[in-house]
């Protein structure tokens, strides 16, 4: 029992530190790809920048606008933090490491991802300002749409592994990572993950060029910090899920399983940042059209074909 608690605390700590470090990593990487340095003043290579940011954000005035719906306004940032952290409970980091083993692990992940929508929508609603509301409305339709393909894209994986249990899914990739047979599922899941964590280029709920800061326009201080943290944890979670579902989880030669998992995850995190550096934000109608007209048939076809092939093989 104590061991389990230590494990939970370890994962929890790693995740928070990882998210904090990610704020620095992202800016350094963006700097790298934009021919500049990024944060390089606080500590060696600017490594203490997250600490400085944290001090700053914690000492900021935490202001609730008088026109806001106070209860929802306060609850909203908590939801996103809780929901994203919960997802990590079901992810097996290595053969021995993992908080809990659920035989409906994948469904749990999907459920939690759906819950985080509430955070964004409630934030937009409770702020009672036009930008926040628009951001919230966008978030609602974007995230609900992409959840559909996210789930559908996983149909193939589930069929091939024959289980919702994530550990079973990882173990099923012993020989061949699912990214090969399930390439289209992988692509669809990657895009859907991008949309779910509303990261650039699919950050339409925020889109600071049009909506100031979208759903969290009115937030300040640590409440804003929680959205910020939630987003970065979301990036890590999405990367971890991709690794788990498609990239063979901890499997890999020579190196210990946990390191393999970490490296694969780091690769996808870096890919997220590269996307941000390179790709501009689509128009809203393009986003929706891409989802419903391309990803939906693609994932459906993927599910049908995978099913057909599996049936034929058995």
């Amino acid at each position: 029992m104590l061991l389990k608690i230590a494990e939970i605390l370890f994962i929890f700590g790693v995740l928070i530190l990882g998210a904090a470090a990610l704020t620095w990593v992202e800016r350094r990487l963006l700097g790298l790809w934009q021919d500049r340095y990024g944060p390089n003043r606080a500590g060696p290579l600017g490594i203490l920048q997250p600490v400085a940011d944290m001090v700053k954000i914690l000492t900021k005035e935490d202001w609730i606008p008088p026109f806001a719906d106070r209860v929802l306004y306060v609850i909203a940032p908590a939801i996103i933090i809780i929901a994203t952290f919960m997802v990590f409970a079901v992810i097996p980091l290595s053969p021995s490491l993992g908080v809990i083993e659920l035989n409906i692990g994948l469904l749990f992940f999907l459920a939690m991802a759906s819950l985080s929508v509430y955070s964004v929508v409630l934030a937009g609603w409770a702020s009672n300002s036009k930008y926040a509301l628009l951001g919230g409305v966008r978030a609602a339709s974007q995230m609900i749409s992409y959840e559909v393909f996210m789930a559908l894209s996983l149909a193939g994986v589930i069929m091939m592994a024959g289980s919702f249990n994530l550990r079973t899914i990882v173990e099923a990739q012993q020989g061949l990572w699912f990214v090969v047979p399930q390439f289209f599922g992988f692509v669809a899941f990657f895009v859907a993950g991008l949309a779910e964590s509303h990261r650039l280029p699919l950050d339409l709920p925020e889109s600071e060029h049009e909506l100031t800061a979208g759903f969290h326009t009115e937030y300040s201080g640590m409440k804003f910090g929680m959205f910020f943290l939630g987003e970065y944890v979301g990036v890590i979670v999405t990367s971890a899920m991709i690794v788990t579902l498609f990239m063979g989880g901890w499997h890999g030669p020579w190196l210990p399983p946990l390191v393999w998992f970490g490296l694969k995850m780091a690769f996808f995190v870096a890919l997220f940042v590269l996307l941000r550096a390179a790709i501009p934000r689509p128009r809203y109608d393009q986003l929706m059209a891409f989802g419903w007209k391309l990803l939906l048939p693609l994932t459906l076809a993927n599910a049908v074909i995978t099913g057909g092939v599996l049936l034929a093989g058995s």
Binding site: L32, W33, Q34, D35, R36, Y37, L274, L275, A278, I279
Partner: peptide, 21 residues
């Protein structure tokens, strides 16, 4: 073109930085 711009941006990893310290 999206993939191409991803690649091009990635190539900036090996460029000299313009920032003046």
């Amino acid at each position: 073109s999206q993939l191409r711009s991803l690649w091009w941006v990635f190539l900036h990893t090996f460029r000299k930085r313009d920032t003046l310290q």
